[in-house]
Amino acid sequence: MRKFFYLLLSTALIAILVTYALWTADRPAGHYLSDLRINLAVDQGMPAERGNLLGIQPELFPTDYQSPERLHRKLAAYLQSARDLGFLNDKTVVVLPEHIGTWLMFSGEKDELYQAGTMKEAMNWLAVSNPLAFIQALVRAQGDNRLDDAYLRMKAPRMAHDYQGLFGGLAEEFGITLVAGSIVLPEPSVSDGQLKVGAGALYNSSLVFGRDGRPIGQPQRQRHPVFEQRDVLGADRPDATQVVETPAGRLGVLIGSDSWYPVHYRQLNDQGAQLIAVPAFILGRDAWDRPWSGYKGLSTPEEVSLKPGEVSEGQAWHRLTLTSQLPISQARGGVSVFLRGQFWDSASAGQSFISHDGQHFSDGEARGARLLNLWL
C-alpha cells in the first residue's frame, strides 16, 4: 500500500512538473493595438548643411514590449513621421529616452504578465514563467537588493541581443545616427562590433549606433544613479566621459541625473563635444510638478546653489541640465528626452526639451509622443 501511495504521489508530481514546463514554454501573442501617432513639439532653427539633433519622446506600454518586432513597429512609425516632416538626413542624430532598452526584460513573456495590475505582480509572473533563469540569476545576484538584481540580470544576454538588433536596425533602416536611450545590463561592452554582457555589476548604459547599424565606441555608463537605484545599479568612474564622432559633430551622452553635474560638461568641453544627448526617465505621473527632492543621497556639487524644495522637479531639470550654456558647456546644442507611458501601476513623467544658446525649448505638453528638432 505504501509503495502504491509513493508511486501515485510521484506520478502526480511528475504530471504537475510536466504541466508547469509546458505552461512556461507556451508564449502566445495576444491582441495588439497601439497608437502610432506622434506630434511635433519643437522645431528650432533653420535647415542647414550641419544636420540636426532630433529627440523622440515615445509613449510606451507593456504590450509594446511583447516582442522586439512590436517595439520596432512603433519606433519606426515615429521615425517615418519625422522623415515625412523632412527631419531625417545623413547628418541627423536621433536621441531616445533613458531605460527604453531596459523594458526589453519583459519581451517574449506570457499574456498574464502584460495583463498584470501592478509592477510587483508583473515581476512575479516574470520569475514564475522563467524559473531556471530566475534561480540562476538570483544565485549570481549582487548588491543589497538581490531580488531586483536577479530580475534585471536573468535575461541579460537576450536583452543585449534584442537591443542591438532593434536599435542598430533602426539606425541602418533610416540612415541616421541613433542614441539608443539606455539599458541596464551587467558589465556591458562592445567587442568585434557586438554588444556583450559580463558577470559583474549592473550598469545603466547608453550605446550610439551609426548609419551602418553598428555601435560607435563603448557603452556610456551612468555615473550617478539616483538614490532609489543605488542598491541595484553600479556607478561608473566620475571621469568616465567619452565623446563619439558623428556626421553632425562630436557627441557626448549624459544619462539622466549625470546631466546635473557641471564637472561632466567641463569634461565634455575638454574632449571637444559639440552636441549633448540626455536620455532621461522620471517615475511618477505627477513627479514633474512636485517639489524637487535634491540630489537624492548624492553630494551636491559646489557650483549648485539650488536647494531641495526650492523649485519643482521640472524647473530643476531646466536649471541643472546645462547643455549649450556658456561657459560651462560649449556644445552647439543639446536635447533632453524623457520616456512617457504607463507600466502597470507605475507611470512616467518628464517633459522633453531642446537646449540652444542658453535657452530651453518645449511645447508645454508632457503627455503623448513628441518630436523635438534642433537644426544645427
Rank of each mutant, 00 (worst) to 15 (best):
V243K: 10
Q229F: 12
D258K: 05
D270R: 12
E245D: 15
A240H: 06
D239A: 11
Q242I: 11
A240W: 03
I255H: 02
L233I: 06
D236V: 05
L233S: 10
R266G: 09
V243D: 13
G252T: 09
R250L: 09
V243A: 13
V244P: 02
D231N: 15
L251P: 10
T246M: 02
T246N: 02
T241Q: 09
D239I: 00
D236Y: 01
V232K: 10
Y265G: 01
Y261V: 14
P238G: 05
P238C: 08
S259R: 05
Q242Y: 02
D270P: 01
F227R: 15
L268E: 00
E245S: 12
G234W: 04
P262S: 10
G249K: 03
D258R: 07
S259H: 05
V232W: 02
L268K: 03
D270L: 10
G256D: 13
Y265S: 03
H264M: 11
Y261W: 14
D258V: 03
V263E: 14
W260Q: 15
L254T: 04
R266V: 10
I255C: 07
V232T: 07
W260H: 15
G252Q: 10
P238D: 06
G249A: 02
R237P: 03
A248V: 04
T246G: 00
P247T: 04
A248G: 04
S257Y: 07
S257R: 12
L233V: 03
D236G: 15
L251Q: 11
G249D: 04
G234Y: 04
V226A: 06
L251Y: 05
W260R: 13
P225W: 08
D258E: 09
G256C: 15
L254Y: 00
P225A: 10
V253G: 04
Y261L: 15
D270Y: 07
Q271V: 06
